[in-house]
Design a protein around this nucleic acid. Sequence first.
DNA 1: CTGAAAGCGCTTACAG
DNA 2: CTGAAAGCGCTTACAG
Lengths: 339, 339
Amino acid sequence: MKRPTIADIAQRAGVSKGAVSYALNGQPGVSEATRQRIVAIAREIGFNPNSAARALSGATAKAVGLTLCRPARILSIEPFFMGLISGFEAELAARSYALTLQVVATPEHEIEVYRRWWGERRVDGVFVSDLRENDVRIAVLQELQLPAVVIGGPGNTGTIAQIWSDDAGAVTEAVRYLVALGHRRIARVGGLPDLLHTQTRTRAFNEVCASLGIDNAVTVPSDYTGEEGGRATRRLLIGADRPTAIIFDNDVMAVAGLAVAQEMGLNVPADLSIVAWDDSPLCSLVHPPLTALSRDISEYGAHAARQLLAAVAGERVTNAEAGTAHLTPRGSTAPPRQP
Amino acid sequence: MKRPTIADIAQRAGVSKGAVSYALNGQPGVSEATRQRIVAIAREIGFNPNSAARALSGATAKAVGLTLCRPARILSIEPFFMGLISGFEAELAARSYALTLQVVATPEHEIEVYRRWWGERRVDGVFVSDLRENDVRIAVLQELQLPAVVIGGPGNTGTIAQIWSDDAGAVTEAVRYLVALGHRRIARVGGLPDLLHTQTRTRAFNEVCASLGIDNAVTVPSDYTGEEGGRATRRLLIGADRPTAIIFDNDVMAVAGLAVAQEMGLNVPADLSIVAWDDSPLCSLVHPPLTALSRDISEYGAHAARQLLAAVAGERVTNAEAGTAHLTPRGSTAPPRQP
DNA sequence: CTGAAAGCGCTTACAG
DNA sequence: CTGAAAGCGCTTACAG
């Protein structure tokens, strides 16, 4: 089956190919009557512009890229990225932008992918997640002048705009809530320590604990997997002064932590309160349902997509803070059982 | 920053652009010495072929497409698709194929996307999941002659190859296992009833139950969400003759079912045994860990990707059965407690 | 307001 | 073995 081209439309409409292009792209240069006739023909014969030809003629690729830097076993149950992708799609689809996905193993591999995408002119811009300190990707993106938006921060990303949510505010709210319930021994199972937002959370956690007189507030670093999260929880719970409340940096680790507590015969929330970061449906799925720091990941993604499309369009995009995650209390938190 | 083109290479190597193209693509027409010189220059200046120009010249787009037809809240915690995507990527990345993703609302919307992708020449082929009976997408794909591979089946898909796993065999094994443990009242919380593989499972479930003398084997249809799965479980458990074992068509519903049972004061596995379909890390995350029908989703995806790339290359691809899921017993199954 | 033409960066017959 | 040229399907100055 032959794909219809603007030449076919031009012939049927009795105009030049240029006129068809102007008409279809809403450019001046054709009369309104001609435009309508051309548009009607295009629709009738099911015309779609060849994306390659379009991209080659200097227009945009109409595609943006996302690299995912997580092992497969994490990606599959990490709700965050799929939520983000859903949010991207909402904006991208509306403007007929495609999303190109690539799973990468390391930040270096990620850079290779950026270079290749740029060289191939495959994407007009990229989403960058998992921001680190002195992130090596930033310099490359600036060198290539590849439009980008960083999801996460705040950090130093030069001319590349960031969007982040107020991690410090959220962790502060969670600790205050637990302290209000009567908890004095509060621990945290953190995400990957290299990531900037993990560091932000750790700093804020330490500060608010200190300010409230919570002495041995400890953060155990982890890697977002259930295995590691469970192990970290076990280590915390077998100690002498075991915490009465734990904040987890993602929902997967929180669910694993819940299982470990139950396996050790502890009652949640009476013996141990649990707060999960990021309120995916996972948190409502378990028993007891988990108190969570909720934010609208989809909307977060949509916001990032709007920023990226603006950057692609050459607009100056400024850093933006998405809403602070707010606490959604559920069955996993309660005052600590009196000893 | 200007992207290097074959013209740049040709100039530096003192040959024609055609020679560069032949050399870089491993075509005959240049001497080995020239080829090596050209390849060296290309590497040195960081050349990547412009994907648009390549696609426009009749070569392939070097991209394949995947549409995801699930609401955002399901996608985010449904481990199946991310597992599949990870598997795709392993094969695609090795051959420098990009994966283009689009979230769609309905099969009709999906068809629109296929037509657009085809018209835009954006992808060389597509993955098709969630096969239904008399699936409307199949005819369109054949009409467009868009290479495709169907993930799921077996069903009637004309010239389009399918890859499926032996759902009937897996459900049979699960039921036999539960019966061997002593269960006589076995129920199932099924996936979307429209999907072909759900129907296959239901048929096999009914048959094996009948053959083993399990009388009121009931399948409650559901939609893969935790909410619905939990609700279905509750309905099953408040009945007079409540089942002592439930098989769930995905892991998310199984986890939700576990929570409902615990919330109702039932002990899993003493009062209720639970078997989850698809053994994502989620199953090992909860307490007790769930007995599951395990299969390697990533490898399933990789297999599908190999098939699709073969179809794109014009090879004749035949239907293939991926391995049968096998039972992985964990803490959620045991002989039923004697009344 | 409209048409004819150049050009994007490749691939690929077609001559030498 | 190599070079010159056409062509893929668009977009966009440039003339009329």
